[in-house]
């Protein structure tokens, strides 16, 4: 097994729950829609990163594994960028 010690999984779980509830409650607070959407998705990204780094141990992995996790995201970003003008902003 890996040489590193296990991180405190329960503490991370508590954070995940807090974040999940926070993102639900924030939708009840009156604020501009774009701001709310931004907050909600930033929170989701933080949750995903927490799970990936600690539960999936990405923090302790080598470059090869890291790139296997990141390369798909870059591809998806490219796909999204090209779809935007065609489907969202077309005249």
């Amino acid at each position: 097994m890996e040489a590193h010690a296990h991180p405190n999984y329960v503490a991370i779980w508590v954070w995940l729950l807090i974040l999940a509830l926070f993102s639900v409650m924030i939708t009840a607070v009156p604020m501009p829609h774009p701001l709310m959407v931004t907050v909600v998705f930033v929170v989701a990204a933080v949750k995903a990163i927490l799970v990936a780094l600690y539960y999936m141990h990405l923090r302790f992995e080598q470059l090869l594994i890291y790139s296997l996790a990141l390369a798909p995201l870059i591809c998806l970003a490219v796909l999204l960028l090209v779809l935007l003008p065609d489907i969202v902003y077309h005249p």
Binding site: L64, L68, L79, L83
Partner: peptide
């Protein structure tokens, strides 16, 4: 390595439908 390969292919698959939904 094999598992992460599989997960990477899953990321692009779910990512594909999520990107489509987003636009």
């Amino acid at each position: 390595l094999g598992m992460w390969w599989f997960l990477a292919s899953e990321i692009v698959t779910f990512g594909g439908i999520i990107v489509a939904y987003l636009v």
